[in-house]
């Protein structure tokens, strides 16, 4: 039904509501609070406003869920030893370091 890009009266009304009603923030403002929210740096009032936007805005809810998943996936991917370099350190590198130290 909605492809997320649809412009129309409903989207327009949502935009006006978020922009003008008390205790509401626009999606663009929501965006700028995300990092502070996730790092638990938002004062209680801002946090409540952020949480309320999350309740009423499908787009931001979906976006934040995918954003959080992205961070998790990134961290988990690097926990895999194969993501690092081959674990056998070449002996000549070790020798080169020790030789350079002597000079």
């Amino acid at each position: 039904m909605t492809d997320g890009r649809r412009t129309g009266p409903m989207r327009w009304m949502k935009g006006m509501m978020l922009k003008h009603m008390p205790l509401m923030i626009t999606c663009a403002e929501f965006e700028s609070f995300i990092l502070a929210y996730l790092e638990d740096e938002l004062p209680a009032r801002e946090r409540a406003v952020f949480d309320f936007h999350l309740k009423i805005c499908r787009e931001c809810r979906d976006y934040l869920a995918a954003y959080r998943r992205t961070v998790e996936v990134g961290k988990k991917t690097f926990e895999d030893p194969a993501a690092a370099v081959p674990d056998a350190v070449p002996e000549d590198l070790i020798k080169a370091v020790l030789a350079a130290r002597r000079t």
Partner: peptide, 11 residues
């Protein structure tokens, strides 16, 4: 975001 600062995000 659209012109009203609403996020554009496919479901």
């Amino acid at each position: 975001f659209d012109e009203n600062a609403c996020r554009i995000e496919a479901p």
